[in-house]
Design a binder for these strands. Structure first.
Lengths: 107, 107
DNA sequence: TTAGGTACTAACAAAAAAGTAAGTATGAGA
DNA sequence: TCTCATACTTACTTTTTTGTTAGTACCTAA
């Protein structure tokens, strides 16, 4: 479990993984779709996921350059897990919200 | 998903969660069973999990003091997720190991 | 009266992660 | 020749997280 966290952990990895689980994306597309990320961080997190064998980087020898990212077979095995985590996170938020409402009702 | 990571993320939270999923434990038991953790970190991570509603802290007014930690109902909903993560992590390690072996065979 | 066990707390240092800002290479097209 | 778009690098700063060490409070029992 700590291992799983090491791979998925990082400020922007959830955002990247969610997107690439749905298909291939270019560097710029990722950058534009992930609000607030800096290029340094985008590259860093992509490299880590690549080194961990979760995503693949495909370079097209064109000008201007084109680089596409997509999940590997190993990466695709995370699909259900990611969904389960997203679902739990959603449930958690709902419960937490309820608690706040109940608190407010008491006061 | 990022939310889930925020709650489970932290150097020692996986270790704590795995243990408390199996039942109640005292502070000292946790400390002894988690090799390498400092008291500062143990307390900090326990407090975070408590504030997030994942675990509960029960103080017995005895001397020497006794404090027990256990998962809340909300915490117990993480059980399957934690197992799934542990399982994926294990699978990942196996695959990664295989890859290294193949690499070595090629060289 | 003093040592002992439990569960912390506080102050500080080190390390790791993330953010900021500026620069680079490439060839296409004006 | 000069600008443009893309996909990065690099150097540096700030923030966050983690580690280290040394205390503290409490009652009990010798």
């Amino acid at each position: 479990m700590a291992n799983t966290m090491r791979i998925m952990g990082g400020r922007w990895k959830p955002a990247i993984l969610c997107r690439l689980m749905h298909g291939t994306m270019r560097y710029n597309e990722l950058k534009k779709s992930i609000e607030g990320i800096s290029e340094r961080m985008l590259v860093a997190q992509l490299r880590e996921l690549e080194n961990d064998g979760i995503i693949a980087r495909v370079i097209y020898p064109e000008v201007p350059p084109r680089v596409e990212y997509h999940t590997t077979d190993l990466g695709k095995t995370m699909h259900d897990l990611i969904n389960a985590m997203a679902e739990w996170g959603h449930m958690y938020r709902t419960v937490a919200e309820q608690k706040v409402l109940v608190q407010e009702a008491i006061l």
